[in-house]
């Protein structure tokens, strides 16, 4: 069965949806992702939906659910690369995804997550980041 890969990048999890989501796939993704957040103790989840051209209310709800579930598990969710048509559809469906962070592309999404999580990271981690940045 098809599966959407969930990649781990340091404190974050990276999900790139390259196919059009169908209901089953989305439900599985939701379950997998929550498991993964729990297992890895990730602090942020980045979902790239730039390749998704069609959404329906179910998909919108799943994305909202993932964000809320991650939040309960203490991980921020950023949805990046939404297509204009998808954004309009979600708004017209009355699903403005309140509480989900959004960014234009993966790069900005990463930056946003880093900024969000920097705030509550302890000083040790901050130093680590500074060193790796300098490298």
């Amino acid at each position: 069965m098809e599966k959407i890969p969930i990649l781990r990048m340091g404190h974050f999890l990276l999900v790139t949806i390259q196919v059009d989501l169908y209901d089953r796939l989305a439900v599985n993704l939701e379950a997998d992702l929550v498991q993964m957040v729990n297992k890895t103790g990730a602090r942020g989840v980045l979902i790239d939906i730039s390749a998704v051209s069609i959404v329906d209310s179910f998909m919108g709800r799943i994305i909202g659910n993932i964000a809320n579930m991650s939040k309960i598990l203490d991980a921020e969710t950023v949805v990046v690369g939404m297509q204009p048509a998808v954004a309009i559809t979600l708004v017209e469906l009355g699903l403005p995804l309140q509480g989900v962070f959004t960014a234009l592309n993966v790069e900005r999404g990463m930056e946003l997550l880093r900024n969000r999580i920097d705030l509550d990271l302890n000083p040790e981690d901050d130093d680590d980041d500074a060193i790796s940045d300098a490298d």
Partner: peptide, 12 residues
């Protein structure tokens, strides 16, 4: 409000 929401969804 719709336009603003859609813009926000795009990440801007």
């Amino acid at each position: 409000i719709k336009t603003v929401s859609a813009t926000r969804l795009m990440g801007a």
